[in-house]
Simulated scan of single mutants.
Amino acid sequence: MLIRAPIPTTDLYFLNSCGDLVGRPWRRGPVQRMGANVFRVGERYLVIRRDVEDVIKEVLSNPTAEIIYLIDDNLNAVDDDGSLPEGYRTRLRTLRDDIYRRMLDRAALVVASSAAITEGLPAGTASRLINPVWRGTPRPRTALTLKAGERLDMVHLGTGSHGAGFQFLTPALEHVLARASNLHFNYFSARPLLQGLDNHPRVHRLRPKSWRAYQRALPGFRFHLGLYPISGTPFNAARSINKILEYTLAGCPAMYNAAWAAPHGLVDGHSAFLAGSTMEAWADYVMAIVEDPSQLAAVYDGARAQYAQMNDLSGQRAFWQDIFIRTGQ
């Protein structure tokens, strides 16, 4: 059977830690792969977010199936979050109104990436929490030893689902690009997201990559400062620590909203740059870094230490061994 490539959620929450336990045509393994994002061990099934209808039907047609369903977005908050692009909101609604609800009706356990998701589950639903993990080690700080006035590349690693973040950043970027001629801003998108600022000579819109290509490219990026503003909506409150790991793997420290990042254990000036909720606060903080770029390497060192704690591959593997695989490998 031809199986499509998994979605990022499947890699981040299962395959990165347990991929070697999944059977392949050339090797045996305790885990059978039924679809891109569906796995089986005996009568236990792990369904990660979504899959094609034939695979979902096969799982649900087994009356003795013990289904574990994993979800990493707060689908109950979609209708109330005006910051989401309409196309993305439509896809989330489709998932919520179809596979998500069918899985909740049958799931013995729901695994989620945030307590904000489990709090919205139907009463009595058994649930557990899990964090994403990546394979790879952040590189040393060599590329971050900048002097004042040297080119400083900022980057936003979000996609179209972070539309509100780009709207927030636009006036702040306009302000800092006008004040510092060594600043550049990079982002990945198939279409312009920064209004007229996309025509600025130091704004670089990069071609989006497939998930596989992005994973390969991430450790080779050469940016100096990540920017990740998150508006305070119920949907965003459920976002996982994934972007924290991504920016560190990309080799740079990052700036986050203090209200979102501090609860995840990030410390301002040590493992991240934590800014206030206003455009002015972000612009001022960026300019402070421009004036003293030595902060970049020091904070990145803290981010690397934080990554080592957050990116718990062995812990995620033990989690799935306990509730799904149960082979002790």
Rank of each mutant, 00 (worst) to 15 (best):
G120W: 07
F223D: 01
I48P: 03
G276F: 06
P208C: 11
A5L: 08
D153C: 14
S114K: 09
Y228R: 05
Y214S: 14
N186R: 04
I56Y: 09
D322F: 03
A77I: 09
D20L: 07
R128A: 13
V110M: 07
E291H: 09
L225Y: 09
P138G: 01
W26S: 14
L225G: 10
L84C: 11
I3F: 12
S113F: 00
A250I: 02
L84H: 00
F166Q: 01
T137L: 07
F221R: 11
Q306K: 11
D322I: 09
G165S: 13
L266M: 06
V41E: 00
L274R: 00
D98Q: 13
R89S: 10
V286C: 13
D105R: 15
R91E: 13
E174Y: 00
T145S: 12
R50K: 10
P253C: 09
R216G: 11
A108Y: 04
D98M: 01
Q195M: 14
R205I: 07
V38E: 06
S294Q: 11
A190W: 02
M103N: 07
L121I: 05
A116P: 08
A261C: 11
G196R: 05
L225E: 08
S314N: 10
L177M: 03
H270W: 02
G251I: 05
L84P: 12
E246V: 04
V110A: 06
T248G: 00
H184Q: 13
Y300S: 11
P6H: 03
L2K: 12
L197G: 00
L21K: 10
R216M: 08
M154W: 01
I67M: 15
A297W: 04
A275I: 07
C252Y: 01
I56K: 09
L197A: 05
L218Q: 02
E246N: 03
A115K: 12
P201V: 02
M34A: 13
Q306M: 06
L144G: 01
L152W: 00
Y285L: 15
A238D: 09
P253L: 04
L193T: 01
Y285M: 15
L157E: 03
V176L: 12
C252L: 06
D11V: 08
F221K: 02
T64E: 15
S181A: 15
H156C: 13
L70V: 05
V110R: 04
G220F: 03
N16P: 02
W134P: 03
A283T: 00
H270C: 11
F39V: 00
S240F: 02
P85D: 10
M287H: 00
W282Y: 09
R151P: 03
A297L: 03
I230T: 15
V78L: 11
A143H: 13
A148Q: 12
I67V: 15
M255D: 02
E246D: 14
A297M: 05
D73Y: 01
E58T: 13
T248I: 02
R141V: 15
S277E: 15
L249D: 04
I117P: 11
G120C: 05
V31A: 06
V31E: 10
T145N: 13
S231Q: 12
G136H: 08
A254V: 08
